[in-house]
Amino acid sequence: MPQEEEYTSDSGSDFTEYWIDWFLGTKGNEYFCDIDFEYITDRFNLTGLSTEVNRISAAIDIITDNAKIEGQPAEVKEQLEYNARFLYGLVHARYIITQRGLAKMLEKYRNGDFGYCPRVYCKLQPLLPVGLNDSPRLQPVKLYCPRCEDLYNPKSSRHAAIDGAFFGSSFPAMFFQAYPHLVPTHPTERYVPKVFGFQLHEYAKLARWQAVQRQKTEARLYELGVPVDNCPGGYVDPQEGEEEPVKSAQ
């Protein structure tokens, strides 16, 4: 794997740097936040990880700059480095759903570090990383858009190769539970294919049915006393005049 090579070639170059700083500065690791030292060194937070990570104590020492691995043979060094990165990822998934971790991820979210939703009607909504599983080595990380509530693949192949378990499946839900005011509104505007200004019949029909489903949700929420008009988690209709009038026919 090309990424593996890059990690090892970069690592030896700067002795004065902290391991975490080096890790976060490596290209492709932009999604990770900086975990507090205290969090990593508290063994309570690592409960259960010793079954996932080989030689966990050595890995902790590397992350916390307590071990020099320069003298080791190349293969051993590489294995130790790999373990350290793997441990960092698994601890990261736990850390980002703590109060401090959420605050750090909030900053990254505001910076657009996880990219923006490619869907046109989401108007560059920032994304959040999410794993489809909590166990490592199953599926790579995906990006969640809170506006269209859908999942997207990361643009860059470096990001697309990161283990989803390093972020976990609960992160976006925890994030918006902590910051409910940041839940975006949902645009009701949608695309229907047209030919010479006329919507394709089958697609227009499906769109009408889907709009009925949305109105049902709105009605149900309204019954439950949940506001749904232009508030966090509510709906916004397309701005008047923005969409051209559509002729509905074949």
């Binding site: 269209c148 859908d150 709009a211 149900r220 988690g233």
Partner: peptide, 12 residues
Amino acid sequence: EVSASGSRMRWL
């Protein structure tokens, strides 16, 4: 569903 981050875009 009642929470602000509850499912609102399933219809789409």
